[in-house]
Design a protein around this nucleic acid. Structure first.
Lengths: 186, 186
DNA sequence: GCTATATAGTCCCAAATGGGAGTATTTGTA
DNA sequence: TACAAATACTCCCATTTGGGACTATATAGC
């Protein structure tokens, strides 16, 4: 086991400049402007802003290109992705897990069904429920799209060493465990 | 300076259960269902999913209640928030920093102006540009809304010790610096 | 200086969105 | 059994959204 010093930059983008200090976000200023830089350096909801920044600039372009290439909307992708992840689930589960309104999920399900990317069968236990299932075509679409997303994520995560990645996930787990205490106001 | 052991849970939510291991996300399953739990534990774009989960379940309810309480949309809030963060900026800067389409920002600016929450003046240097500025009313609105957001974020971040919070930000900085290399496909 | 190209911002309109009512079914209560 | 309340899902429709054309201004190339 190699003991590595995590403080200097890891494998990729080595030696461009120190990772912290005032010049750390020079590249951001180039691409996203001065305002973006100052928001990422200092604002009253800094931690949240930074997390949202990452999520936002990953997700939006990804969904946009997926729409163009596969004609599949964000909600439609999410439905397929969820089905791929767990068997025997219903629209309600997808709403809960993704935060999308039941409305949009229902519509996504209807369209995916029309496109023969999924099927559903009324649950025997509870005939209100429809158990969703991806078709071979649906799986095939994910097999085209998910690798693109994975590759994109790998690039996103590439500045972190394996050890740092693990540490990030440890911290995220702490935050995620806590979400139920604050997610739903009132 | 107190040397604390960061591995056991920090100040709040102490002793509920270990923060990792199979039972770590029991609470998630309660609130968000089994699907959500399995997605947060394992999926091909796990890191991204977890980051998006946090951003999503912070942002959506926040914007929704702000809409209800203040009659201000997401884009409108973002415009105000940006103006509060930096002087002399234009709509374009806000688009770059937030990823919102210029369209929506333009509309948000128009509406905020009608509501007397911001003003603008054509730039002398470049008469295409409109320099935006918040009014006292606009600032007052932020003074009502931002503390709510800050409080919510503090709860969100409360599971982390100061040291862990700092470490998280170190890791996020590494990721953020790298965004320009992948954010815009093609 | 003149023309072509780029940029900031706005407008139009077709399409997407989500709130909330509606339907079908199940569960709880007596 | 009867009936009230809850739940899963769908439908209707007013509102929002964002792509892309358009206007005004600025910049670059010659």
């Amino acid at each position: 086991m190699i003991m590595e010093n995590d403080l200097p930059q890891s494998s990729s983008n080595a030696g461009i400049s120190p990772e912290s200090g005032p010049e750390a976000l020079d590249q951001i200023e180039m691409s996203f402007g001065v305002l973006s830089r100052s928001l990422l350096e200092k604002n009253p909801i800094l931690d949240l802003w930074r997390i949202s920044f990452l999520a936002n600039f990953y997700n939006e372009p990804f969904y946009k290109t997926m729409e163009e290439n596969e004609g599949i909307s964000r909600s439609e992708f999410l439905v397929l992705f969820c089905l791929n992840s767990r068997q025997g689930i219903t629209a309600r589960e997808i709403c809960l897990a993704t935060g999308r309104p039941r409305n949009s999920v229902s519509r996504a399900v209807a369209r995916l069904r029309k496109m023969k990317l999924i099927t559903y069968s009324v649950s025997e236990d509870d005939r209100r429920r429809k158990i969703l299932q991806e078709t071979d075509q649906g799986r095939a679409l994910l097999d085209r799209v998910v690798p693109v997303a994975v590759a994109r994520m790998k690039v996103m995560m590439s500045p972190l060493s394996p050890k740092e990645n693990k540490e990030l996930n440890r911290l995220l787990t702490k935050l995620i465990r806590n979400v139920p205490t604050w997610a739903f106001p009132e």
